[in-house]
Design a protein around this nucleic acid. Structure first.
Length: 1036
RNA sequence: GGGCGGUUAGCUCAGUUGGUAGAGCAAUUCGUUUACACCGAAUGGGUCGGGAGUUCGAGCCUCUCACCGCCCACCA
């Protein structure tokens, strides 16, 4: 055996061996019907292992290895997520780097192929990284959210929810990412406070009308009265003024009561053609804020959208998919006239309103931020920019003063713009400012699906650990909004809906008339199906009900766009097609939110919608291990879909897992998530390279208890590497001392034998008891998900008990001549050490596996070892108390030696006094150990303490070290006095407590008894110390 | 604005029915041809953020304040 564990080479070798043995395969090592299943939170397929993954997978692996060792039928289901938007960004980035033509120029089909190629290049990296961590997933069952099986699940879920009315399409204001040109869900928006500005502009009243503007204070006293020909509006987004549909004030706001119902002018655009909009009332404006008047831009603000819907105010879309001002449509004057006609009573459909482009010609094509600058400049030039701030507000926002910087002497000059902290929405992937955009999108009726998901946690069917997270879960689900699931991306599951022209406008008796159908959306019908073939059937049945038997005569083809459908029809128009009809069905181009497919993960990876044996056996799964950041994204959605689609044997909705273990996030020192852009990432792979996977795993395990943040300290990893080194050397010691027989490959005694015939030697009996104890502690800790307790129990047992005491104590025996004692000790050493390996394996799989096989020939690898289930009756209480006494005695002697400056090499005598015969026996029985451990030459027993000796009080005796002449009397005196002072303080406290009648009356008996015992012991010890002081005084 | 965490030794953090404050690292002293220097022995170090309350007894329960952080929703 090498002197140290070479993690780097050993880990690779051991991984290979596990793989070769199929050690992680589902059901491997199963000896009971009890199942245990965890589905991995699928990492992004193009991702790299970060500390969060490391923690997450360490926890899962501990549970999985533990259950597998217990003989449970165990499956850890692995896989990866296609990471919709994230992967598309990555692919496009790579294409740009490689100077390939961009996405749009190669087209959808080629791009998707390119993305698959990218996936093939990077797809195994994260899996290999998980393997390096030691994750014992059943890799043969690896799944991918876009593989055939999982895609089938997605289709089935979509179609069923669609047919149940739980998925629908609608024109809504959604969060739009102008960089990726797609909608995103609420959860994918990060709201960040940034320094912003608020502008105040005058909207002149139509036709130069005026009114008396009156401001009053709280008492009703008039503070301002003036004649105005405008209404003042505050905005942080001047560029959206172009799309204003109204100005709203609160119905109770008396200042504006005179002008409600009148029209005002949007002060931007060509002067002669400025749009007029009505002043309306709505509950939304806060009279206390700004001027109390709000411009209503329904197509670009979520609050305004609500007002617009209530007040029947048109929503004018100003921007294109890139967030630039629209360039389509007729010149501004014509478009504005259309809008104006609505005010005058013209009726228009939503689509017609959406088609109106109200961007004045000079702003068309400008980026939204450029447009903002231009709008501000133009309005300001016209003198319509105003400030309506109080003097206090004019000071601007408080500036953070840097050290040494002088306080601002004078207020700012009156600004034309108010500096203001504003919360801006950013795309969590693209990091660009999100634009509310009025678009057609697919939604899931989340509120309906949420109800059973809430109930299942309420009634305890699924439990969160720690429980506190249930509150977070409820809070979100109870206020859930429709979930926008469509993305205008190319990478992902395409929405399984096909559109075809409606034939209902005309009688389909003459199908030839439908040869070139109008693809105007008004006449489109949607068919949701799991395949084109199915959609075709649905279309025929719906559109040509009279010709079911003539279905062959309807020639349907699938087109990727409406343009293509029309082109294709034009192209084939001349082809003879007797007696039939030719129609192109166009598939919805959108893809689904990544979380739509990962939300099915527990069902889909086990085979659903097929009724596979795995699904029957392992669903519902047991524990879901996750960070709290994806409780909403993922956990809640798995609960919703799981409950909707899965049933138990009784036909009741079934949850996907009974326990959700929520762990902390690994963060940086500021409590921020680790991120590449912040440069605060600790790479787990580098840590593994340097310290080994076991050390990293042990570190994360010991920190798993933390509430929310784990601030990883690399020093701690180093500390736990030392721990594995410790374990390694304890094994080396076993090898050197032949604890494992090379012939039989075993240590000669089974647990059962040791239980029936306990060893003679008290040290061996004691270590068996300690082993039983630690096995119970570890087991209980794992049962209760208290991973840090399991780690700490092992740490202190292996290092503090086994290595520091047991290993040292058996040295004299193993070096001695008593062959019988040696044989017994070897056997017990090996047994106890094996248990250290068994119990540590879930946390530190590599080193324990390595030692397991290198110490002895084994029937099975440790990964399939039998998890200890030791019976309490193996704890020998007598040996226990006796040995704790020995340990305490040795520690006391060592302490005294160091304090009094006795040289480590010097052996001293010890004399026991004030003892009973039993105590004397106890001492003599253990004399060899005490002599060895405390460097004592002789353990004697006497009536009286020798002259000039140092005394150590024990509860049942005194230990005297004859050190006359060796020690400094003054130092010893100081030592005794210090101990005495400490003791007196304790005695005083205890006496006070026991003298307190209410304490005696109210405290439970066992507590009182405990305090009494402690007092007695402390008093006895105090006496001994006082005696010693007296004797010392006699010498001095 | 709503919700949730945190504040314990120099540092990173444990501390589960309220009953003598703990670990690792760091520090100091001493040691080691003995499984291990990725070592051993010993030592020092905390009015458990402030205040109030409940209790015989509070790091733990209640209230409050302060600071730090997270989540959700937001005033145009």
């Amino acid at each position: 055996m090498d002197k140290n564990f070479d993690a780097k080479t050993a880990e690779a070798r051991i991984s290979a061996e596990w793989e070769k043995q199929n050690a992680f395969a589902a059901s491997s090592n199963a000896s009971s019907d009890e199942t245990f299943c965890i589905v991995i939170p699928p990492p992004n397929v193009n991702g790299n292992l970060h500390m969060g993954h490391a923690l997450n997978n360490t926890v899962q692996d501990i549970l999985v290895r533990w259950h597998r060792m217990r003989g449970h039928d165990t499956l850890w289901q692995p896989g990866t997520d296609h990471a919709g938007i994230a992967l598309q960004i990555a692919v496009e980035k790579q294409m740009a780097e490689r100077r390939e033509p961009d996405r749009k120029s190669i087209g959808r089909e080629a791009f998707v192929e390119r993305a698959w190629q990218y996936k093939a290049e990077t797809g195994s990296a994260i899996i290999n990284q998980l393997k390096r961590l030691g994750s014992s997933c059943d890799w043969s069952r690896e799944r991918f959210t876009m593989d055939d099986g999982l895609s089938a699940a997605v289709l089935k879920v979509f179609v069923q929810l669609y047919n149940q009315g739980l998925i629908y399409k609608g024109k809504r204001l959604v969060n739009w990412d102008p960089a990726m040109e797609t909608a995103i869900s609420d959860l994918e928006v990060e709201n960040i406070d940034v320094d912003g500005h608020m502008w105040h502009f005058k909207y002149p009243l139509a036709g130069g009308a005026t009114y008396e503007y009156v401001e009053k204070d709280e008492d009703g006293t008039v503070t301002l009265r003036e004649t105005r020909d405008y209404i003042s509006i505050a905005t942080t987004r001047p560029e959206t003024m172009l799309g204003d549909g109204a100005v709203a004030v609160h119905p109770s706001d008396e200042r504006y009561a005179p002008i409600v119902g009148q029209l005002c002018e949007i002060p931007v655009g060509p002067k002669e053609h400025r749009r007029l909009i009505p002043i309306i009332t709505d509950e939304y404006p806060d009279p206390e804020f700004g001027s109390g008047a709000v411009k209503i831009t329904g197509a670009h603000d979520f609050n305004d959208y609500g007002v617009a819907k209530r007040g029947n105010i048109p929503c004018y879309r100003l921007m294109d998919t890139k967030g630039a001002m629209r360039e389509d449509g007729a010149p501004y004057t014509e478009e504005a006239a259309k809008a104006q006609s609505i005010i005058e009573g013209a009726e228009m459909t939503e689509a017609e309103i959406d088609a109106i482009n109200l961007v004045p010609d000079q702003y068309r094509g400008l980026d939204r931020f450029e447009a903002r600058k231009a709008v501000i400049a133009d309005i300001t030039a016209e003198g319509l920019a105003v400030m309506t701030l109080s003097d206090d507000e004019r000071l601007g926002p408080p500036k953070k003063k840097k050290k040494g910087e002088e306080e601002e002497a004078a207020p700012h000059p009156v600004p034309l713009v108010e500096a203001k902290k504003i919360t801006q929405p950013f795309g969590d992937r693209s990091k660009v400012v999100i634009e509310p955009m009025l678009t057609d999108q697919w939604f899931v009726d989340a509120a309906t699906l949420a109800k059973p998901a809430i109930e299942a946690v309420r009634n305890g069917t699924t439990k969160f650990v720690p429980e506190a997270w249930e509150k977070t879960y409820f809070q979100w689900l109870e206020n859930i909004e429709p979930w926008c699931i469509s993305r205008q991306l190319w990478w992902g599951h395409q929405v399984p809906v096909w559109y075809g022209p409606s034939s209902s406008v005309e009688e389909p008796t003459n199908p030839r008339k439908r040869l070139t159908p109008s693809y105007d959306t008004e006449y489109l019908r949607a068919y949701c199906a799991t395949s084109f073939e199915e959609a075709k059937q649905l279309y025929i049945r719906d559109q040509y009900p009279r010709f079911p038997e003539d279905a062959d005569e309807v020639d349907l083809f699938e087109a990727t766009s409406f343009e293509e459908a029309v082109d294709e029809l034009q192209r084939t128009k001349d082809l003879a097609y007797e007696g039939g009809v030719r129609v192109g069905l166009v598939r919805d181009p959108d893809v689904l939110d990544t979380w739509f497919s990962s939300g099915l993960w527990p069902m889909s990876t086990l085979g659903w919608p097929h009724e596979t044996p795995e699904l029957a056996k392992y669903y519902k799964t047991d524990v879901l291990v996750t960070g709290f950041d994806i409780i909403f994204f993922w956990v809640a959605r798995m609960m919703m879909t799981g409950l909707h689609f899965m049933e138990d044997e009784d036909g009741q909705p079934e949850v996907p897992f009974h326990t959700v273990y929520v762990h902390a996030l690994v963060r940086d020192a500021q409590g921020k998530k680790m991120s590449k852009s912040l440069g605060n990432v600790i790479d787990p792979l580098e840590i593994i390279d340097e310290y080994g996977a076991d050390a990293l795993r042990f570190t994360l395990t010991s920190m798993a208890a933390m509430g929310r943040d784990i601030k990883l300290d690399v020093n701690r990893v180093a500390g736990y590497r030392s721990f594995s080194n410790k374990l390694w050397n304890a094994a080396l010691f076993a090898k050197i001392n032949d604890c494992y027989s090379p012939d039989t490959g075993s240590y000669g005694r089974t647990t059962e034998e040791l239980r029936k015939n306990p060893p003679r030697n008290v040290v061996n009996r004691w270590v068996i008891g300690e082993t039983v104890r630690v096995s119970k502690s570890v087991h209980r800790a794992l049962e209760e998900f208290r991973f840090n307790e399991a780690a700490n129990a092992l740490y202190s047992h292996i290092w503090g008990t086994f290595c520091d005491w047991y290993l040292e104590l058996v040295k004299p025996v193993l070096r001695g001549e008593d062959e019988e004692a040696k044989a017994e000790t070897r056997a017990v050493y090996a047994w106890a050490f094996d248990h250290c390996l068994l119990l540590s394996h879930p946390i530190m799989p590599f080193i324990t596996e390595e030692l397991w096989s290198s110490l002895a020939k084994r029937e099975k690898m440790l990964v399939h070892g039998d998890w200890p289930d030791l019976s309490e009756d193996m704890i020998d209480l007598v040996a226990d108390t006796e040995f704790n006494w020995v340990v305490r005695l040795v520690k006391e002697i060592r302490s005294v030696r160091v304090q009094l400056g006795v040289k480590p090499k010097d052996e001293i005598e010890m004399v026991l006094t004030g003892h009973t015969p039993e105590v004397a026996m106890k001492l003599l029985r253990n004399a060899p150990y005490i002599q060895d451990r405390a460097k004592v030459s002789e353990c004697a027993v006497a009536e009286n303490a020798p002259e000039g000796s140092v005394t150590i009080p024990m509860e049942d005796c005194s230990v005297n070290l004859p050190l006359a002449g060796v020690i400094d009397v003054a130092v010893e005196k100081a030592r005794l006095e210090k101990s005495l002072a400490k003791l007196d303080k304790e005695i005083k406290g205890l006496q006070g407590k026991l003298g307190n009648e209410t304490f005696l009356a109210k405290a439970p008996d066992h507590v009182i008894e405990e305090q009494r015992e402690r007092l007695t012991a402390a008093q006895a010890e105090g006496e001994k110390l006082r005696d010693a002081l007296t004797r010392l005084a006699a010498i001095g």
